[in-house]
Each structure stands twice: as C-alpha cells, then as structure tokens.
Design a protein around this nucleic acid. Sequence first.
DNA 1: GAGTGGTCTAGACCACAAT
DNA 2: TTGTGGTCTAGACCACTCC
Lengths: 243, 243
Amino acid sequence: MATRTRTPSAHPLFMQIKEMISERVKAGEWKEGEALPSEFDFARQYGVSQGTVRKAVAEITDEKLVVRFRGKGTFVATHTHEREHSHFFHIVDNDGVKVLPGTQVLTCRRRKANKEIESHLKLSPGTYVVIIERIRILNGQAIIFETIIVSDEIFPGLCSLEENLPNELYPIYESKYQTRVIRADECIRAVSANTREAEVLGVDVGTPLLEVDRIAISIKEIPVEWRRSHCLTRDHYYKNAIN
Amino acid sequence: MATRTRTPSAHPLFMQIKEMISERVKAGEWKEGEALPSEFDFARQYGVSQGTVRKAVAEITDEKLVVRFRGKGTFVATHTHEREHSHFFHIVDNDGVKVLPGTQVLTCRRRKANKEIESHLKLSPGTYVVIIERIRILNGQAIIFETIIVSDEIFPGLCSLEENLPNELYPIYESKYQTRVIRADECIRAVSANTREAEVLGVDVGTPLLEVDRIAISIKEIPVEWRRSHCLTRDHYYKNAIN
DNA sequence: GAGTGGTCTAGACCACAAT
DNA sequence: TTGTGGTCTAGACCACTCC
C-alpha cells in the first residue's frame, strides 16, 4: 500500500477507522453478541494494514462497545450481569464488599413527564414516561429507595412486566428494547428521609440519606434513564476509586 | 534480534518491560519532571524492539506515572494544579461547573494516632500524626468541613506551614516530601452535621452532609493521607462519571 | 488445518522541539 | 540537522478455537 491519500483531517488514520467502525457498531450493523469482520477483513475494506485496524478496534474494545476473544473473533458487547453489577453498582457494605441486592417493586405507573423529567431525559413536551418505585434489599435490610424513570416511547410496555422486573434492568433494556447503556453520569448529594422513605426504610423522618441521581446514556448517546436512589448509609457506603 | 529467550512467565514481553520501567520510575531513578531515556535507549537496554518499548511506556503513560511530548521526550509526571483539581476534586455547583475552592485553616495539631487512624493509614502503634481542620469556600460560601490526617513521619513539619498551607496539598506533598499521590479510594456516606460543623457551615445541627472519606495512595502503594470531607450539598454535588 | 486475535519485529515516514 | 515521540506498514510467530 503506497502512501495513502491523506485526508486533511487532523485525526490519524486509525482514529478515522475507529470512528467508522464505531459508527457501524452503534448503527446496529451487527446485532448484540454477533461477530464483527476480522481484522484482515476490515483492513481490506478500508485499504489499511491489519495493525492499523487492530489499533482502531483496540480503542473500541476499551470503550466496551465490543469484546474480543483470541481464536474466536470480535463481538458486539452485551450487558452481562457481572458488568452491570461491577460497573454501575457502587454500594458496598462497611467491609467494602459488594453485596447482591434483592429488589421489591412498590409501584409502576405510566404518566406524562413533567418539566424536570423532560429536561433530564431530553424529552419533547407531553411525552409519556414509565415511573417505577422500588426498594433494594441488602443482607435482609431495605437499604435503597429507588425511583426509575424512562421514556414510554423507548420502553413501551415496561410496566406490564410489573412483578417480573428483574434486579438489573439494563440487560432487559438491551434484550427487549435494543437499548444498550454504555455510560452514566451520577450526581451525589446528602438529603433527608421524607415520611414515605422513612417508613419504607424503617428509619426516622429526617435521617440523612445518600441521593444518587443517575442519568444513563445509551450507545446512541441518548439519555434513556433517570434513576434516583436514596440510600441508607449506616451499614453501607458508596465506593469510588480514583485512579 | 533473533528469537528472545522466553521467560516462562505468563506475561508478554511488553508487560515485563513495563513492569521493569515502572519499578524504576517508582524507585525514583528519575526525579519528578525529569526525562526518561528515549524509546531507542530502552530498546537497547532491554534488547527488544522500539515498538515493544512503546507499548510498555504507553501503559505507564495511561497510569499517569509519566507524560510524553512529541519531539521532547518522556518525563516523570508531576502533580500539576490542574491534574489535582480535575482528577481528585469532584464537587461541582448545581450547574455541574467545577469551582475553584478557597481554603481557611481552622486548626493544625500534632498528636498520637488513635486506633482508627492507625488502621486507616496502616501505621504502627504510637506513631504521631498531623491533623488539619479546614473549611473550603466555594462562591463565597463555606461548603466543606475537611479533616486531613497524615503521618508526621512522612510529612514532618507540615504543621509549621500553618497559615501558608495552600488549597491543594498534593503538590506540596510531592515537592517538599517526595510523596506522589497517584490514586485514592473514597467512601461516601450521608451524615448529620454536628454542632461544630453546623456552626462553621452556618446550618442547623442535623442538616444532612455528604461525607467523603478519602484514603490517598502514594506511588509507593502506601496510604499517606486520610481526608474526611463533610460537604453541604444544597448548592453543590459530588459528580461521578461512569464510563 | 484454517482462521482468529495477541505479540513482536524492523523499518519507514511524519510532526514537532531544540540546537 | 538531530532526536524525540506518533503513526503506519508488512510480515512473522504464537495461542487458541473450530472443524
């Protein structure tokens, strides 16, 4: 391959390749779990060397869009239980050990979004949303009061699952609604338990609770879920590692 | 370079090179800000190709132990103001904007560590520590009540700086005490303001505060600072991005 | 055995900084 | 001009999976 026609773009070649492959993955050209073409295939497609494709795909792997297995191939990443739990769940017990939470749905309803929800999920006015309230149980104690809000257009019929809603929702978003959560922004505050939360969590009104406000972003860069968790941090805490 | 004598080690070559260079950096073979040998030098030293060294140094760069500049070289990373602020300070105002905090030292004293401190900083019994209490001021409001505890053996005379203690301590740790903080573990809880905090922060006793308990780890993998921040999260919050 | 990703090499050219 | 890190190539060998 003689000297390539250099696009005046500031990006190096492997970055351009990365963007192109990345876009194709995001566009759903290969379904979740499906294999992508091999490095050599991509190299032929784009007229670059295998090494350049490797570097591009390595970056996409870092972003957890795909996973690679030696001898098998490159596959569109899926939301495994472990990934969700290890990656998105930051509450641990006082010994620093991550505990698998149980879940109990309190309410699940469908209604019009208010201004606040519209703003958080970037919805057009009048959009319907699904609002789930549930508690999460760690070591037998109700620890977290969780309010989950998603667009009814993206997740139609989520309410109908009602009692069958699993602990971890992201795998459902992915398998039933073709919506893959790849990252999230969390806003963390200290708040006071209101009467409802106090009752459900079995504490006094006014007890300090940890509020974790999470906006989950899909692979298409759309905010798809607003989740507000109010956590009792007497026997647990939110663990964050800064590297 | 013919086929190399493969160590039976499970690690690939570039990983071994990475470990060796990494150890030398951590041992202080080059001072902070000082240049490391070039890729070709390392390649000669270790008898591998430049590409292999590149991959090793790339990983060390990812770990922020060194920084690289094209045309100049590879240098031992230093604690710049920006890095500390962007990396370790997670409190932002309600618009999500990071604010530069001012600081006012309340007390600074030297005393024997108690059991709790010994355990957090892994100190031998009877070690003296320095305890600094200070408030941090954002947009003119006292927002954070901060207690900082470090070993007096690692940071002798820190107290004597007293009023001259800067906002950001890590650059001081590095320049005056040859101690570079590279990562930290944070435990986050919701707590109630005690009388002291209530007075200092100008709120009622019992107001929910965000407790951020941080153990800072040095480049030598030693816990060197225990910092407990109690933050008023009325106009601010702790921001965490999950990628 | 064929195909995949993972590692390693040797060499080329580039952008940039210092001299 | 020299030296640096950054990119790219072409080809080799390896470990692993699947047939």
